[in-house]
């Protein structure tokens, strides 16, 4: 099958696919078809190392549902030092995938910062709170959608949308709201469920969840709480970075230690 034939069939079927095209530099017009599963029709940008690096980047773009331009050396070099000695290949990576979603429950101070960082990472962001005066588009202009609702009905209506790329963050400390939010989130396939609160708050929350019938250890193990990586975050913005870094490391399965202190290839 031709590249365009396979691309068209995947796009029509709503199956994730990315197309990398050289748009400037050596080999203008060369194409690489990238899919997360299976073997696509043979295609190449003209160099096996370039193909390997672009395929890696295209899969990340696809996972985030992003399209954009990247620059490489003719053998896939990416660092500024390496790029100084080579022709530059400019590649347009176009992704066909729905963006991952982040659902944030609780319209609190931390919500706006988290929504902003989530947008940078390519998430479609939903902010949800039952309190009409807090859950407004004016307070969260960066969110794609702001809903005044209780968590239960939102999960009942749309929980099936959430998959491994998607994220639920529960930022309220109010049991009235966060217990149904945790219950709802655990009933989905969301890849990451973060629940804000101190260790003590989380211990109390676990007691209330048990009272509500949520006590399966496998379920409770999915809850990231206290939420975020231990980077000493204090402000809402720092906390948002801490949470989002944890989301990335959960997806990649990495330990989130300084690269200086680890060994082996950085990009695996």
């Amino acid at each position: 099958m031709s590249i365009s034939g396979e691309l068209a069939s995947r796009v029509r079927d709503g199956v994730p696919v990315a197309l990398a095209t050289v748009i400037a530099g050596p080999g203008v017009g060369a194409k690489l078809l990238v899919v997360p599963d299976g073997d696509p029709a043979p295609s190449s940008l003209g160099d096996p190392d370039l193909d390997r690096v672009v395929r890696r980047d295209a899969l990340a773009e696809l996972e985030a549902g992003r399209s954009g331009v990247r620059h490489y050396g003719t053998s896939g070099q990416t660092t500024p030092e390496d790029l100084a000695d080579t022709d530059i290949v400019t590649v347009f990576v176009e992704s066909w995938a729905p963006p991952p979603q982040m659902w944030i429950f609780g319209a609190v101070d931390f919500t706006a910062a988290l929504a902003r960082v989530a947008k940078i990472l390519g998430f479609r962001v939903l902010v949800c709170d039952a309190r009409e005066i807090f859950a407004t588009g004016r307070r969260f202009p960066m969110a794609d959608e702001v809903r005044v609702a209780w968590p239960g009905p939102v999960f009942a209506e749309r929980g099936a949308e959430l998959g491994s790329r998607d994220v639920v963050c529960i930022l309220t400390h109010d049991p009235k709201f966060d217990i149904p939010a945790v219950k709802g989130a655990l009933a989905t396939s969301a890849g990451y469920i973060g629940v804000m609160g101190s260790r003590r708050t989380h211990a109390h929350r676990l007691e209330r969840l048990a009272e509500a019938g949520v006590d399966d250890p496998a379920d409770l193990a999915r809850l990231m709480s206290p939420v975020g990586l231990d980077i000493g975050a204090r402000t809402p913005e720092e906390t948002a970075i801490s949470i989002c870094a944890e989301i990335i490391s959960a997806r990649t399965g990495r330990e989130a230690r300084p690269l200086r202190d680890t060994e082996g290839p950085i990009h695996r």
């Binding site: 748009i23 399209s67 954009g68 331009v69 347009f92 176009e94 992704s95």
Partner: peptide, 15 residues
């Protein structure tokens, strides 16, 4: 013809 890059305000994004 495909949009590959938009700077500032643009009506349609990459793709």
């Amino acid at each position: 013809a495909r949009v590959v890059d938009v700077e500032g305000s643009g009506p349609r994004g990459p793709g």
